[in-house]
């Protein structure tokens, strides 16, 4: 067995999300429409720390019961600061298929940590969850993320026209997917 840690990286590590400790920070993220629409509750408004605490507790309880969602807090190794959230959803173990989102608190965190966080997320998906397929949804205006996932081997599979409304305009919504054989091939090439 490869005993390289699933949760400990060079610059970041994954822990549980702790509604008591993390709610204030997540509340501050809700001023970003991006965060609320894509990763939180859908309807864009700000959420108070108390609301976030309650919502996160409900989400985590549901995740614990159904085992169809997993949440990880992404923290800096230096000072434990939470800089993002990794969420696996739509997990269907019988189909060996799941979706995921990777959220970063700001542009700086994205630049610094997105490569390592994605690498760890993919290893977890294919080597621990033993998935065959992993996918995510991106809006067509998020060119930075599109580049990140395309570089990591994801393929654009679907394009839902005008499915996203952002800054006063309609954009397309894209599904990106990667299959285990594709991911494994890239691992060999890297080594």
């Amino acid at each position: 067995m490869n005993n390289q840690s699933l949760f400990q990286g060079k610059t970041i590590h994954f822990t549980a999300v702790d509604p008591e400790k993390d709610a204030a920070q997540i509340s501050s993220w809700t001023s970003s429409p991006e965060f609320v629409r894509r990763y939180f509750d859908g309807f864009f408004r700000t959420y108070t720390t108390v609301e976030v605490k309650k919502l996160m507790k409900e989400k985590l309880k549901k995740a614990d019961e159904s085992r169809q969602d997993y949440y990880f807090a992404i923290r800096e190794n230096e000072d434990e600061k939470m800089i993002g959230i990794l969420h696996f959803g739509w997990i269907m173990l019988s189909n060996q298929s799941a979706g995921f989102d990777l959220y970063f608190s700001d542009h700086n965190a994205f630049e610094k940590y997105s490569n390592e966080a994605l690498k760890m997320a993919l290893r977890y998906a294919f080597m621990e969850l033993s998935l065959h397929r992993l996918c995510l949804i991106l809006p067509s205006y998020d060119e930075e993320s599109i580049l990140l996932y395309e570089r990591a081997g994801f393929l654009r599979e679907t394009q839902s026209r005008q499915a996203v409304f952002h800054n006063g305009k309609f954009y397309d919504q894209l599904t990106y997917g990667i299959l285990r054989p594709e991911w494994k091939k890239l691992q060999v090439e890297v080594q």
Binding site: N95, S97, H132, R133, E157, T158, Q159, R161, T175, L179
Partner: peptide, 24 residues
């Protein structure tokens, strides 16, 4: 037709695609 999600379903020992469709 708006695209194909590849090999999402695993049944009858085979992988099956899901088709996305939309109407404006």
């Amino acid at each position: 037709y708006e695209g194909t999600q590849r090999e999402v379903i695993y049944k009858e020992d085979q992988r099956w695609d899901i088709i996305d469709m939309g109407i404006l």
